[in-house]
């Protein structure tokens, strides 16, 4: 069995606003295996970013962890001292954020910036750290890296800046790399290059990756497993094949159904009607109830538990209860499921 590097259990986070306390994360559990890429997907406000910020212990003053543990190397990250956390953050667990312009210091040349983790975490000499920084910058594909070490972030293009951020994140060989929408701000051709770079690096240094995105095309390309988040909860998780070819939760159906594809030939895009619920007073039942055309009466009253679909695949929807009526998913989802069945049978032959 695969080794777990990170194990998040029963995590709940509140944050205070002028209008009341928002229950931003509600009882979230997931784990990350060694060497795998786990994608967290969901709409803005579903709690993806706050979950990974909690792993980095980068919560703002108004954000409180009300419950849960995060196991990393046999210890609970949430109980680590500030000093211990400084060692982990940027060393054993590193993060790439969405906007490369704001995650780089505009007043520091990129050589020093990329070398900083080595100086801080490994106490390496300046000369040696800069030498390694040059190597890593070459590795992530900065042309003429050695000559450009003294250049500043504004002298690079968006794609190159993101490469620099990646170089900074991987220079100390992190066990876990958290990528929070690392390609959302980039052009498609640059996005393709960055994704390839991350995959190559993963194979080379054996890092485990948590990849946050709302682009399911990117997920299909990079993820081994997928967790779908909605309104502060994980509603479905499984292998990338489970989620794309045998989705069970109506929210996952909606997400897949609203993705435009280049090959589709209809004139109208499918959408998920309505907006996510206000998490100051989260609904008593399934949070997706109001937007779910497949909702059952019980969805309004009681939160669905996780039902097991297979050893790798779980979904929190009452539709999987034995007593639930059979529903027909949208046509595009049926096509995906037929494909899944065909492939499953082929595997058995």
């Amino acid at each position: 069995m695969a080794q777990k590097v990170l194990d998040v259990k029963d995590l709940s986070i509140d944050f205070d606003t002028l209008n009341g306390t928002v229950k931003a994360i509600r009882d979230v559990s997931f784990h990350l295996d060694k060497g795998e890429t786990l994608a967290l997907v969901g709409e803005s406000g579903s709690g993806k970013s706050i979950t990974v910020r909690t792993i980095m212990r980068l919560l703002a003053d108004n954000e409180t962890i009300t419950n849960g543990t995060i196991d990393f190397e046999g210890k609970d990250i949430l109980k680590e001292s500030k000093k211990e956390m400084d060692k982990i953050r940027g060393g054993k667990i590193a993060m790439i954020s969405q906007d490369p312009m704001t995650s780089l210091d505009p007043t520091m040349n990129i050589g020093n910036q990329v070398a900083e983790p080595l100086r801080v975490h490994e106490g390496m000499s300046k000369h040696k750290a800069l030498e390694q920084a040059a190597e890593v910058l070459e590795e992530v594909g900065i042309p003429n890296a050695r000559e450009r070490m003294r250049d500043y972030p504004h002298q690079f293009s968006g794609g190159q800046r993101q490469r620099i951020v990646i170089a900074m994140a991987i220079i100390d060989n992190p066990d876990v790399l958290i990528a929070d929408e690392p390609t959302t701000a980039l052009d498609v051709t640059v996005q393709a290059q960055i994704i390839k770079l991350l995959k190559d690096l993963k194979d080379k240094i054996g890092t485990s990756i948590i990849f946050i995105t709302h682009d399911l095309g990117v997920v299909a390309n990079i993820a081994d497993r997928v967790a779908v988040m909605y309104a502060g909860k994980i509603v479905e998780y499984g292998t990338v094949d489970d989620i794309f070819y045998n989705p069970q939760h109506p929210y996952t159906w909606g997400l897949l159904d609203s993705m435009p594809t280049l090959s589709m030939n209809s004139d109208r895009l499918n959408t998920i009607p309505g907006t996510p619920p206000n998490l100051i007073n989260p609904p008593k039942g399934d949070a997706f109830y109001a937007r779910n055309k497949y909702a059952l009466k019980i969805d309004h009253e009681k939160q669905p538990p996780f039902f097991k679909v297979s050893d790798t695949h779980y979904a929190a929807t009452w539709l999987l209860d034995k007593r639930a009526p059979k529903v027909t998913p949208p046509e595009s989802i049926q096509k995906r499921q037929a494909e899944f069945k065909k492939r499953g049978e082929a595997d058995h032959d």
Binding site: T189, A192, I195, G217, V218, A220, V240, L262
Partner: peptide, 10 residues
């Protein structure tokens, strides 16, 4: 450009 667009199909 068209070939770089990722499709939601693993």
């Amino acid at each position: 450009l068209l070939s770089a667009v990722p499709v939601p199909d693993p």
